[in-house]
Amino acid sequence: MKNLALATVLSFVGITAFANVETPELETNNAIEIVVGDFEEIDVSDLPSAVTTAVEENYPTAKIAKAYKNDEDQYKLDLTLEDGTTGTVYADAEGNWIDM
């Protein structure tokens, strides 16, 4: 009976030893770059009227300093307020604001 118990324990240990799979180490020194979209600068005059209207309604004291457009017809707008404060907002072609 002792031999049966000992054989069972040894076989279990032998099976689990072969079942141990080495997992690769996680590399923590890699940098991850997230690309929101490839925006290319465009003239402010090339913006759709819906976008300029949205800026005028929501930011009445702001001027559009620079405008950018990506392949998905999304616009990145660098705004400057009268007090010198600057900020960036994103909009689609219909003048809806986008969170990015």
Rank of each mutant, 00 (worst) to 15 (best):
L6H: 11
A7D: 14
A7C: 08
A7L: 12
A7N: 11
T8R: 11
V9H: 04
L10W: 10
V13M: 03
V13C: 03
V13P: 01
I15W: 15
I15Y: 15
A17F: 13
A17D: 10
F18R: 04
F18L: 15
F18V: 15
F18Y: 13
A19F: 05
A19N: 09
V21F: 12
T23C: 00
P24F: 09
E25F: 07
L26K: 03
L26E: 10
E27Y: 10
E27P: 01
T28C: 09
T28V: 13
N30H: 09
A31N: 14
A31R: 09
I32T: 15
I32H: 11
I32C: 08
E33V: 14
E33R: 02
I34P: 10
I34G: 08
V35D: 12
V36M: 08
V36C: 04
G37H: 06
G37Y: 11
G37W: 06
G37K: 04
G37V: 06
F39K: 01
F39L: 02
E41Q: 14
E41V: 06
E41K: 08
E41L: 01
I42V: 14
D43C: 02
D43I: 00
D43H: 11
S45Q: 05
S45N: 09
S45W: 00
D46S: 13
L47T: 07
L47Y: 02
L47I: 06
P48R: 00
S49V: 07
S49A: 14
T52N: 02
T52Y: 00
T52E: 02
T53L: 09
T53F: 10
A54I: 00
A54E: 01
A54Q: 02
E56R: 08
E57N: 12
E57K: 10
E57L: 10
N58E: 15
K63T: 15
K63I: 13
K63H: 11
I64V: 08
I64T: 02
A65L: 10
A67M: 04
A67N: 02
A67R: 01
A67F: 07
A67C: 00
N70A: 08
E72C: 03
D73E: 09
Y75C: 03
Y75A: 05
K76P: 06
K76N: 08
K76W: 01
L77G: 04
L77V: 05
D78E: 14
L79R: 07
T80Q: 07
T80P: 02
L81R: 00
L81Q: 10
L81I: 04
L81M: 14
E82K: 05
E82A: 15
E82T: 15
E82S: 15
E82Q: 14
D83I: 04
D83S: 11
T85V: 13
T85D: 11
T85R: 06
T86Q: 05
T86W: 01
T86P: 01
G87D: 07
G87T: 05
T88D: 06
T88G: 01
Y90P: 07
Y90D: 09
Y90L: 02
Y90T: 05
A91N: 01
A91I: 05
D92C: 07
A93C: 05
A93P: 00
A93K: 06
E94G: 11
G95P: 03
N96K: 12
N96C: 03
I98R: 01
D99A: 12
